Amino acid sequence: MIITAAAFGLIVGGLLGLVGGGGSILAVPALVYGVGLPLSAAIPTSLVVVGASSAVAVVPRLRNVNWRLAVIIGAAGTATAYLGTYVNRLLDQKVLLLAFAAIMVIAGVRMMMPTKAAGGSCALPGGGVHWRSCLPKAIATGAVVGFLTGLLGVGGGFLIVPALTLVLGLPMAATVGTSLVIIVINSVAGFAAHLGDLHIDWAVTAAFAMAAMAASLLAGRLGTNIPDRILKRSFGILVLAVAAYVTAQALLT
């Protein structure tokens, strides 16, 4: 079990290091179907793994992090994630999965389409930020992403990366680093919400997390040398693949 956990940790960490997202949506299925943990243990374990590996992956990208945006979006998302979690309990899970897949298809297609150079009030040509127009967008983005993350239960990075790129206009290099910081914030908040009823195998968690952190650090260093266009297109393909898988699971189960 520990070896299997480490193997999946390499995959999850590598993905986080390269594109700044996608770890949580793979970590939970890997822990449940690959490692054999119950869902009650897989969710908090995933939060530890994804949070720790994201913190390590951001180290090579510290110069590219927009810290103010990360804190604003993370704070707004933390508040609305609890609301999303509450609504999640009221809705049919198949409906939620299909909604998630639809959002992923839209985000994936948009990420793969040719776009104008990134920019806007949150990413001025000179590298600054016009906060009067950017701040409302950042708060709204954080609130929506946080709500959807809580509502759907997985995929924080899959939502944050397209939001930072398509809504706020950040270049991919800044998007990846900023996304990783936001994921760390969300992971800490999510783990704190599970402290009252925590079921976790710390040996499996440690093996998964150590492998993920090592892979995310290496991938993070390699990712800084990959052009934005390739990262965006690769991320878009990955999002569409996950959307297809989620749709199949929702319709066939």
Rank of each mutant, 00 (worst) to 15 (best):
L240Y: 05
S54F: 03
L37D: 01
A203T: 09
G119S: 04
L18F: 14
G128A: 07
I25P: 02
A215W: 08
G34Y: 00
Y86G: 00
V35Q: 02
L124A: 10
A6W: 04
K137H: 07
G220P: 12
V161F: 05
I3V: 09
A30E: 04
A75H: 09
F235E: 02
V161M: 03
A57K: 05
P44A: 12
G146Y: 09
L152M: 13
S40A: 15
S216M: 10
A173H: 15
V59E: 01
F100Q: 02
S40D: 11
K94D: 15
V32F: 02
G190L: 11
G150T: 12
A117Q: 12
L10T: 04
A143W: 07
V49Q: 13
G220I: 06
K94C: 01
V58I: 10
W67R: 13
W131Y: 11
P114D: 02
M104Q: 15
A99P: 08
M113V: 11
Y33L: 06
G153W: 10
V242L: 15
G153P: 14
V246L: 12
V188D: 04
H130I: 05
I73A: 00
V12L: 03
V50P: 01
P171H: 03
L238D: 01
L124F: 11
V28E: 00
A30I: 07
G9S: 02
V184A: 09
A107E: 07
F147S: 08
R89T: 15
T175F: 09
R61W: 00
K94T: 14
L96A: 08
Y86K: 00
V87I: 14
A189Q: 11
I106Q: 01
T178V: 03
A57F: 13
I3Y: 05
G142F: 06
A27D: 14
S46I: 15
V49I: 11
A81M: 13
V184D: 06
L238A: 10
R132H: 05
G196C: 08
G77P: 11
P29K: 03
M172D: 06
T45G: 06
A81L: 12
M210V: 15
A192I: 13
C122S: 12
Y82L: 03
V181H: 02
S24D: 08
P171K: 05
L97E: 13
F208A: 10
R221V: 14
Q93E: 13
A206Y: 00
L39G: 08
L195M: 14
P114W: 06
P227F: 01
P44D: 14
G169K: 01
P136R: 09
A42V: 05
W202D: 01
G150R: 09
T80F: 05
L15D: 00
L96W: 10
T253E: 13
L159F: 14
V95E: 02
T115N: 15
S121E: 13
P162A: 06
M112L: 14
G17F: 02
A174D: 13
G155R: 03
G156L: 07
M1S: 06
L240I: 10
A102I: 12
T175G: 03
L31N: 03
N66S: 11
S53V: 10
A99F: 14
A42S: 06
G236H: 09
L252A: 07
R110C: 04
R63Q: 10
I106G: 00
F208M: 12
